[in-house]
Design a protein around this nucleic acid. Structure first.
Length: 415
DNA sequence: TCTGGGGTCCTAGGACCC
DNA sequence: TCTGGGGTCCTAGGACCC
């Protein structure tokens, strides 16, 4: 018996830009970009000129002189994104949210209540449009991969259902870059051997695919090209890491730059870890030099950390090691901290041997207990009075960030 | 052509243990 | 002592996704 197509992939169209056009009707039908120095999102009218998310504001304006830049109503993005996902949740609890504006759902268990998957998808689109005022595209298929591709094909503001009997016919006509896992590098490699469509990729032998892309990637793409997608829908997946980074333009690799930046990054990361009681054992830093080449260093500890000061100091040590290895690099363009190997749930108040690792780092420093108390006090003050109410010394003096913190938060995964 | 930030997964090599 | 195999963990880098 053929399995029915019950996987939905729903994706809000040009999300941030659509919200801006919703909030300000005068912007509707016009090319707009959210952001300033960097384009965070572009409306479809702007995309028609070649404007893309991530582009510099200057490049975007060159492509589209009449482009309108808008500030960004970040709390509205959050509110409306949550509301759209909630509409999907009205049909099934089996929802896997991928980002602020995108989710998978499996409606196999609720068709007797709400109709066929195609009808459910149409209802979701109608409700998001009427209740929230936003366009959303939906793909329906038997697998996540195909549902995702279907929603991309459906854009803007459309619905595409792929019936089980029509899968390969649909899939094989499409360009390879629509496949999950085919980015610029893989696309270029495939292009070099004359492969442009998923059908052409499917007809390659596994051997030549493996030679081209490596055994694992080759096997994976071959499976997807024949619509064998092993990925299950996972409603509640927990984050595996948490991090923060800061682009610095071109800046000298000096103490005065590095210390406050790392402290700020450690503060952001550690605060999130503490809020969810998920300290982590592995600390990774990344330094990007002026030529955009980047280097990472990691250390895995016996005990997990989530203290701001401990994290900052560990990161500082790793960054120093990198700079010592590359003495000729005087200019850096980015610093990043990430913590992984996160604990599932850690009783911070009970597990204070965290302080032992601390002592080992710098004998004579305040104890882990004192650190813990200080972090908790700061967390509580911020809960009441806001993030800016208090901070760690020079971190507050850091140069203005290129991207607002509110925007960063939208990209954070729930820990 | 080189823009920013938060993530996931994979790979290869080495250390270490049995 | 040498050789081999299997497994786990860690590090560094890379591709990719939103």
């Amino acid at each position: 018996m053929a399995v029915a197509a019950t996987i939905l992939h729903a994706d809000l169209d040009a999300f941030y830009a659509s919200v801006e056009q919703l909030l300000a009707p005068s912007l509707r039908g016009k090319p707009i970009a959210v952001g300033g120095g960097v384009v965070l999102a572009a409306s479809y009218e702007a995309k028609a000129f070649g404007v893309r998310g991530g582009m510099s504001g200057r490049d975007a304006r060159r492509l589209c002189p009449q482009l309108i830049f808008v500030g960004g109503h970040f709390s509205d993005y959050k509110r409306l994104g949550d509301a759209a996902i909630k509409v999907i949740g009205d049909f099934t609890p089996l929802v896997e949210r991928i980002s602020i504006d995108e989710a998978f759902a499996d409606v196999a268990g609720c068709t007797h209540l709400f109709g066929t998957p195609a009808e459910i998808a149409a209802t979701i689109r109608r409700r998001v449009r009427s209740e929230l005022g936003l366009p959303i595209s939906v793909g329906v298929a038997r697998t996540k991969h195909l549902a995702k591709i279907a929603s991309q094909v459906a854009k803007p503001d459309g619905l595409v259902v792929v019936d089980p009997g029509a899968e390969l016919g649909f899939l094989h006509e499409l360009p390879v870059e629509l496949m999950w896992g085919v980015g610029p590098v893989t696309r270029t490699r495939l292009e070099a051997i004359g492969v442009a469509t998923i059908g052409q990729l499917a007809r390659l032998s596994e051997r030549s695919l493996a030679r081209l892309l490596g055994p694992a990637a080759g096997e994976k793409l071959a499976a997807l090209a024949w619509n064998r997608d092993p990925r299950q829908l996972k409603p509640h997946r927990r984050a595996r890491s948490a991090g923060a980074q800061s682009a610095l333009g071109r800046t000298p690799a000096t103490e005065q730059v590095i210390r406050p930046t790392l402290l700020h990054l450690a503060d952001r990361v550690a605060t999130r870890l503490r809020a969810k009681s998920r300290p982590g054992r592995t600390v990774t830093v990344r330094v990007r030099f002026a030529d955009l080449k980047s280097v990472t260093r990691a250390i895995t500890l016996d005990a997990p950390v989530c203290s701001t000061m401990i994290l900052a100091r560990l990161a500082d040590g790793l960054v120093r090691a990198i700079l010592a290895e590359y003495p000729r690099e005087k200019i850096i363009s980015l610093l990043a901290i990430s913590v992984s190997h996160l604990e599932e749930h850690w009783d911070l108040a009970l597990e204070l041997p965290l302080g032992l690792a601390d002592e080992a780092l710098r004998p004579g420093s305040p104890t882990g207990m004192a650190r813990f108390a200080a972090d908790c006090a700061i967390d509580r003050i911020r809960d009441r009075f806001g993030w800016e109410a208090i901070g760690y010394g020079s971190a507050a003096l850091e140069a203005p960030r290129s991207v607002p913190d509110a925007f960063r938060e939208l990209a954070e995964k729930d820990l």
